[in-house]
Amino acid sequence: MTQSYLSIEGIARRFQAPGGKGSTVFEDLWFSMNKGDFAAIIGHSGCGKTTVLNILAGLDAPDEGAVVMDGKAIEGPSLDRAVIFQSHALLPWKSVLGNVAYAVASRHRDWSRDRVRAHAERFIEVVGLKGAEHKKPAELSGGMKQRVGIARALSIEPKMLLMDEPFSALDALTRGTLQDEVRRICLETGQTVFMITHDVDEAIYLADRIVLMTNGPQACVAEIVDNPLPRDRRRLDLHKQPDFYAVRNHLIDFLVERSRTFKDGLPPDYDRRRPPVVRPAHLPPTPPDGVRAA
């Protein structure tokens, strides 16, 4: 666990409710990621997913515990971690180029204007927005806006990408295309990604590991699903993969039933520090060491 690239170590977050009674969103939360991992976190509203992401981003601080990334404790926002916001959060008075260049110039404060511009243009091209550099966000469709958000996050070449339901505001068609591109870019660059999602299929397609969180308050990590699908999976024939429905049913079953009841009947060997790792499969396989089949 100490070798992990990112390690969340026993964090808790409490909110002071009016009237003096505090409420604990989650406590004693443990989770770790290796470099190049793509992890998705799934859970119902109110389980504190966004709070976890904000803590990783440094926009919020845990009341207990700590998060260590690349050997350093996270103590506030940093250019090492880029956030792709659900609402894309573009600056509406700046053009596409202006929005991306703002991030690039913040990252590389000593760069010349031309160099910043060239760097920004390269990432605008990566997300397929070449030709729209001088448009204002208001002139773009929802999908294009989120592309700008992705370009802005990638342009600072962060150690880690944090995505807060990045595709939830998009229509199904646009969402699919953007998922493909995000997966391609992340695989090509070996980007470490932490994503929040509500969409089970999105999690299965994009993530290597899926973190299941129980319902709040006092939410915890119920288990970590190791995605059994091959790494070269494609969105179009995802449902034809032999293990697809095993994973999908496992996730849906968790969201519908177990996210609510999990805490009432904790497995005897449940350890908050090492939540069980599950690898759903269509046939009972011979499980590798330390990995339990569901």
Binding site: P77, L79, F85, A89, W93, S106, R107
Partner: peptide, 26 residues
């Protein structure tokens, strides 16, 4: 909007620059 301020925070933009490049235009 808080999200615009959060953009500046994640980009480690200093308070003075934040006032001129985010808050003033907004």
């Amino acid at each position: 909007r808080k999200e615009w301020l959060n953009v500046a925070r994640t980009l480690e933009v200093g308070p003075l620059k934040r006032a001129f490049t985010i808050i003033l235009p907004a």
